[in-house]
């Protein structure tokens, strides 16, 4: 399967492990990524605060290039692994379609550079979306040679992959489950992580560090309360904040968290039996090795049969999957 690919600035450096592991798992999954030629920054959350039209035009240039280069033919699907890039590309396309004036203005700006973009011509998708929906959990499970038995993983989605919601959103904006199911298909034990779609602090590390540290602390505390061995994520900003700022959190709050934060592609690579070197492992601040050492080759024996609840217990509501 061929896809257009927009790595975004973070994957070039800070999230190099995400880039390496994405490329590493692409081959066994039969995915070919064709990078948009001469792409530029998506503007993150910053450009929109200064000049809206310039920001939309900045993103528009990427869409125009992707549309022009027809990276995977008529499907023209553009994959972004970074949630902020994904949102900016997706939102620009969507807003240009919704708002005629914005569409006209963005195209007037693009024309100055000899470009044009018709909203709707490029379909923007997040890396996780194509992996779980185009490849599928079963196909992924089939590729697993070294299941991640006994590793307790908290799947962390952050914000911008699931919000703002649209009709086309591939997962629930409040309680997404795709990464949970993916992690499960790799053999790991999935933590039902209540804060899985809460904010990592975003750029507040730069603007008001105390605000950011508190948001990071909430996530780490919740993962620790749920006995997670590690957090798995899909966004460079989330990874950076939870990983690189973990020590700052410990200093600031007198806590003692040591929860490694890896990209889901890294866990997939490990489960596929790929070499750790090709997956960017070791680039994390909080060393993931002790957690990864917990992985056992056999699933742990089912811990004692579920105790029958006492007879007074009232039944829990049935959930859609069960009923």
């Amino acid at each position: 399967m061929k896809y257009g690919y927009y790595p975004g600035c973070s994957l070039e450096r800070n999230a190099i492990a995400y880039q390496q592991s994405t490329m590493a798992i692409a081959k066994p999954l039969g995915i070919e990524f064709i990078e948009v030629e001469d792409w530029n920054c998506c503007g993150a959350t910053e450009y929109f605060a200064i000049d809206a039209l310039a920001a939309y035009a900045l993103v528009g240039r990427n869409l125009a290039l992707a549309s022009q280069q027809k990276l995977n033919g008529d499907r023209n699907q553009l994959v972004a692994p970074c949630s902020a890039c994904f949102l900016n590309l997706y939102k620009t396309d969507h807003y240009m379609a919704e708002d005629n004036k914005l569409n006209a203005n963005v195209n007037e700006a693009l024309a100055a550079g000899g470009l044009h973009y018709d909203p709707g011509t490029v379909k923007v998708r997040h890396l996780l979306d194509i992996i779980v929906n185009d490849i599928g959990y079963e196909a992924i499970a089939e590729r697993v040679t070294k299941p991640l038995f006994n590793l307790r993983v908290a799947p962390y989605y952050g914000c911008m992959i699931v919000r703002p919601a649209s009709i086309e959103s591939f997962d629930n904006p409040e309680y997404p489950t795709s990464l949970d199911k993916l992690t499960h298909s790799l053999g790991a034990e999935v933590v039902d992580f209540p804060l899985k779609a809460h904010c990592c602090g975003g750029h507040m590390t730069q603007i008001s560090e105390n605000t950011a540290l508190e948001l990071i602390r909430r996530l780490l505390k919740n993962a620790a309360d749920y006995d997670a061995d590690m957090i798995v994520t899909l966004c460079p900003m989330c990874q950076l904040n939870l990983d690189a700022y973990q020590e700052n959190v410990n200093k600031h709050f007198g806590t003692n968290f040591h929860i490694p934060v890896l990209y889901f592609t890294q866990l997939m690579g490990l489960a596929f039996g790929l070499s750790a070197n090709n997956l960017g492992l070791g680039k994390e601040f909080i060393n993931a090795k002790p957690a990864l050492d917990k992985i056992s080759s056999e699933p742990l024996k089912k811990q004692r049969r579920k105790k029958r609840p006492p007879k007074e217990t009232l039944p829990m509501p049935t959930m859609p999957e069960e009923s």
């Binding site: 629930n172 409040e174 309680y175 039902d192 829990m316 509501p317 959930m319």
Partner: peptide, 19 residues
């Protein structure tokens, strides 16, 4: 259940009006 942030079905001590 359509409003996951209210936890019904996941958090034991969330009840509906009819319950």
């Amino acid at each position: 259940r359509r409003i996951p942030q209210y936890g019904y079905g996941r958090l034991a001590n969330v009840f509906t009006s009819l319950e």
